[in-house]
Design a protein around this nucleic acid. Structure first.
Lengths: 222, 222
DNA sequence: ATAAGGAGACTAGTATCCAAGTTCTGTCAA
DNA sequence: TTGACAGAACTTGGATACTAGTCTCCTTAT
């Protein structure tokens, strides 16, 4: 009665390629050959083909018959679309969260924020980023929509991939923490306006970063 | 300098199967054999395999190694997730629409609504449904986010597929038109609350239909 | 010198063979 | 009659040969 599917060669190839693409180890515009990738992984072309189509479905690859497959470049439209969808979902989750919010939920979120403060006090940015991730995920779970988190995450990753281009340019952790606090107090006070407004502000912090990247890396865009 | 990709056998198989699945000509739980489908289409297994993996990536098929692949059943969680994302996007689009709304945009939307009224007066439901589609699309375009429409549409289709199960049970066209009017006047008056509220109400009309289907067709759910 | 054309090295799509696992069925024994 | 076991007949996954279209570069002719 095993419920999980066997791990297949296709999966392995897919995951490795996916990682390399989203982490920009393989840059946009890079040509990928089925046979060459097959050689590199020591497998036949078939699993590579499967992985390619999967990546193509996610718009990470451009596959055209009889032409070299290449890593898709960024498009400002796509990035803005991903940001729109993420924002939209986050706002609706906040909306649903305020409707079910109670003392228990408030306490759980407060606990996360306390840990964030601790991490910043310790100068431990790695832990802080993990807690940042948890903070957002927590709101989805507490609002009763855990699955929506994955949808949001998919959008977020598309933007994150772009933002990897500007390396040192991380937002101020302090500002992020302040946003989180505002969102939390908005939820706690039952103020939809404050909670949503804070979320909007939180997600708009990337505006300048993305505009900057668009200007400084016109290549990598299609 | 042709920009479009050649049409391939894989595409043909994929599109046909996709249609048959989303139109419920092939019901959830149906077992699909690569070889059998290949025979039916008069092609080899390979393009069928490609099509299968593509459909599997879209969660329309569940493919497990060495086991018969079958058409995925509905899941209430997935349907509710699709509805959540659609609602979220529609609300954010309305939000952006009110910020750029002007007389010209108002006139274009009013024109569409006038046609809707005419269609209902004529008892022409086919035209009305086309105008319904146009109404929503128009808001996306007028708000400056035409691409987001496709995202919404994808969510909508997942729900539509489920709703095909209850055949005669179409919502009252008059009620739909009233919703549209409320959304339009909300936009025209710059009232975000009214516009979003009307949209929320509009999309919640499916609540009972979906609950009804869930109760009357427990099979078809996984 | 330059431009047109062809050979060859690519590309992905398709067909087919084999391997490995699951499911069903039929037979044989209790 | 029923149950268990063996095996056939499925299933998809992977490998490989072959087809067909594209691109590049070099040769050749103007």
């Amino acid at each position: 009665m095993d419920d999980f599917t066997r791990r297949t060669t296709t999966d392995a190839v897919y995951e490795k390629l996916h990682d390399e693409i989203v982490s920009l180890q393989i840059l946009p515009g890079t040509k990928l050959s089925e046979t060459e990738v097959a050689r590199r992984f020591g497998v036949s072309r078939q699993p590579v083909r499967n992985a390619f189509t999967k990546l193509g479905n996610e718009d990470l690859l451009v596959i055209r018959p009889q032409k070299a497959t290449e890593v898709r470049g960024f498009s400002m439209e796509r990035v803005e679309l991903a940001r729109l969808v993420r924002l939209a979902v986050e706002l609706e989750i906040v909306h649903r969260a305020v409707e079910v919010w109670d003392a228990l939920r408030e306490a759980k979120l407060a606990e996360n924020i306390a840990l964030q403060e601790q991490a910043i006090a310790d100068g431990d940015l790695t832990t802080f980023h993990a807690l940042d991730y948890d903070f957002h995920k927590l709101i989805y779970e507490l609002s009763g929509n855990p699955l929506a988190f994955d949808v949001m995450l998919e959008c977020k990753q598309k933007v994150d991939r772009l933002c990897l281009l500007s390396l040192g340019k991380a937002s101020e952790a302090g500002a992020i923490l302040a946003d989180h606090r505002n969102i939390a107090t908005g939820l706690a006070s039952g103020s939809l306006e404050q909670a949503q407004g804070s979320m909007r502000k939180h997600l708009s912090r990337l505006d300048e970063t993305i505009a900057f990247i668009h200007k400084t890396h016109p290549d990598y865009f299609e």
